[in-house]
Amino acid sequence: MASKTIRRMISIGLLLIMVIIFSISSDVFLNFGNIANLLKDSAYLGLIAIGMAFVIIGGGVDLSAGGMACLVGILCVRMSTMGLNGFLIVLAGVILGMLCGFINALFVTRVKLTEFVATLALGFVYSGLTLIFAFRDDRGTITSVAIPKWSSLRAFAGNVGGIFYITIVWIVVAVIAYIVLTRTTFGLHTYSIGSHAKSAQMSGVNNDRIKMLGYIICGACVGLAVVLQASLLGSSPLNIGSGYEFQAIAACVVGGVVLGGGKGDPISALVGALFFKTLMNGLYKFGLATSWEYILQGGIIVVATVFDAVFNRATSKRLLARAQ
């Protein structure tokens, strides 16, 4: 069996074990409402994680995702108050996200800043712009404004048979992203620059172009995630995306996307986000202190990273042995 399949099965297996344990130990875990809410919560993080997977697999990282989400969110709510059609707002959210991703990519590929510094700095810039575009009252004080009741953007908070639209979008995007990464030349090139950028370049891959596309896709996912989340919340609080860049990275890592690049796929990010949110959802049932939430999240990231390192070493050895 391919090592990728084994790794995926382990992630899904752990997720299933967790679900079984929570289902047995709590009488409210395995009910439809809870599962629908769990999937809805996972979708917001999961969509950002899918975008992040493109960047990480390509050997980069995007620390601006949180600030980007805050900016796109507030702009979309502004559009809703202007009476723009809901579909157009969603589209605008995606385009704005892509624009932010493009700016990130410019700083990485043209200005040649390291990805960590460029995206960290731009994250701050996006957060600052969020405050500039924030709603203010007559005296100039920041205030919160809801998406108007009449806005068609609110329709995106709906559900089909209890499953929220954002969940459906998440799964569809994950499948499309999987196909893009595993069945297209762009996907192949993303893996190749993530595995060994120099070799990829020498093989004729346009590294900068591939990186740029990765950031743009990441931005699109963030934009889509936040506009759907804003429709669910009925507004876009100024910190709607704060901290989600790290959660998304953590989801990717736990799902099996290797931080160094070249390994993993969007389904790994999906599983990782679901894993984290299932863990949190389950823990809420038992009234554990927040301190334990942090400890468990951190512990799981460490265990997943160590496991990946051991697993990858073992896989390499196995392949080497087979080659000999």
């Binding site: 409210v28 009910n31 409402g33 809870n34 809410n37 919560d41 919160s144 404004v145 809801a146 908070a157 669910l232 919340l233 009925g234 507004s235 876009s236 609080p237 100024l238 910190n239 709607i240 949190m280 959802n281 809420y284 049932k285």
Partner: peptide
Amino acid sequence: VTLIEEAITQKYDCIILECMDPVGVNE
């Protein structure tokens, strides 16, 4: 919002809420 929904799922009897955003939690 997730925590409020969690309290609903678990049929809590009351929620005391220190609210972060006056609009985002309304639903």
